[in-house]
Amino acid sequence: MKDSARHLLMGAALVLLVVLAGCRTEHRFVKKVTFEKTNDIVITFAGPVDAAWAKNVDNYTVFEKEDPDILLAIKEITLTPDRTKVTLHFKNALNQSRAHTLMIKDIISEGKSQGAAVLTVKKLYLGYLFSILIGAMLIHNFVFTKYLGLCVFFGTSQKRTTAVGMGITFTIVIVFASMLSWFMYQFILKPIRLDYLQVVVFIGLVSLSVQAVDTILRKVNPALFKAFGVYLVLVIANCIILATPLILADKEYNAWESFMLSLGAGTGFLIALFLMSCVREKLELANVPPTYRGLPIAFIVAGLFALAFLGFSGMAIF
């Protein structure tokens, strides 16, 4: 009871945070500033603004919050017919994962000045994290669109129970191992300039975390260990578990983003295994030509799944 109340409270806090982050602007006349497409910023005003003022490029100054000396060049400005929405088109694509500062000179609306405004434009961070999770899980699924971890994928997708067991074990280990490698890379390898040793260090950390999960699970929950212990050995033979720390190091993700990506990679593998095992259980009963029995037909089924997952490509969330 106490637990559920706490969860409810946390949920409410999260919703409040999202609402607050969505609507907050620092100026009374500016209602909303958002990113749009790849190189647009849209400003919504509370009332109609002067067209000549709005179309003047000199009235807007935009830069990334962290580098105030690099001003971003505006190519064109458009105004909606009701004169409340201004769209700034930029020459280059904006790095939307970073916060941008937008300074507007002396807003003029119906002949009256509304004062200058300094605004911050940023994406919803929770939304961004969520998009990393969904991206790793479906849009860039490691098995079907990056073709990693195939040995273990074909080896353990014969039965549904095996597939689920392997998937869950893998998710636990990959989150553990990726966070460990992320910490090691960001705080030890990079500061002392040993980043060329990443392969050696990451594979060592992966084996270490497999061993750690093995030991902890054996002591803490023997029943769970009985169910999932056999899959732990296989986890290390899966290239996804090494690919994820390498991708994290390459993209310089922070702790939350790393957590989301590794969670997405693990659950994505679980989804792929589950889908595949459902098909392969049915294939046992089908009349497959003898030359295609076993692995060849499994590869062709995986190819069909990959075609289906191609449909997710190019999808953008938030």
């Binding site: 030359t291 295609y292 692995l295 060849p296 037909i297 590869f299 062709i300 190819g303 191609l310």
Partner: peptide, 22 residues
């Protein structure tokens, strides 16, 4: 040339190897 055609290719070539063996 699509990346995912690799699955089909490997499947077909494995089938050819199996056929030769049979």
């Amino acid at each position: 040339i699509l990346p995912l055609a690799g699955f089909f290719c490997v499947g077909f070539i494995m089938a050819i190897f199996n056929y030769v063996e049979i």
